[in-house]
Amino acid sequence: MTIVKAENVGKFYETGTVTVQALKDVSFSIEAGTITSFIGPSGSGKTTLLNLIGCLDKPSSGRLDVGGSNVLALDRTNSAKFRGGNIGFIFQDFNLVPILTVYENVEYPLVMVRDTPAAERRKLVLNLLEAVEMADQSEKYPDQISGGQKQRVAIARALVTSPKLVLADEPTANLDHKTAYMILSLMKKMRDELSTTFIFSTHDPKIVGEAECIYTIEDGILTGQQEKGAANHA
């Protein structure tokens, strides 16, 4: 089943009189329950593409369907609802809420987005904190834990609502090898058990190696697609 389908998607930004074309006629599709990676140099358009898939931004042209919904048709509130219901985000800089503890950061989407009952919330949060080996740090605040620990919390937060799709922008960029591999295996476990789809933008060969499908972007253009065991240049 296709979870993301892009047809001739373009995105440009206007800065004063200058128009910057971030993406040009990008077309691809991603199957549910896969791990897909977008690779390319800095400024190639990877993050822009991830933002479009995550309904954080809208394409300037073309059509983009995520989870069967045309993202162009979603207004501000429905975009938020859609993200809350279907998408988990893992940010490169973790973006944890500093006033909330580790436990509360992971719990946040269940409370403020999903309105999950307290007992169920507790179970889900504790399970994930154990999975990312952060259960013993649950009462700490983000400024009391290391970068790797923050990223694990951010991953737990992204996964706690069991989203159909998880988007991760350079998820292992700030992590050591051990943590990066632990996180990758957690993601694969989620993919296997819940058919969660993971889409990354990355430079990290560890992640690239784990991806089942790799897209290469250069200057806003999709220049290559490589599936595990096969190479296919666009």
Partner: peptide, 10 residues
């Protein structure tokens, strides 16, 4: 921005 991205309604 983070809260909104996670899906917090306006």
């Amino acid at each position: 921005g983070t809260l909104a991205a996670i899906g917090t309604l306006p």
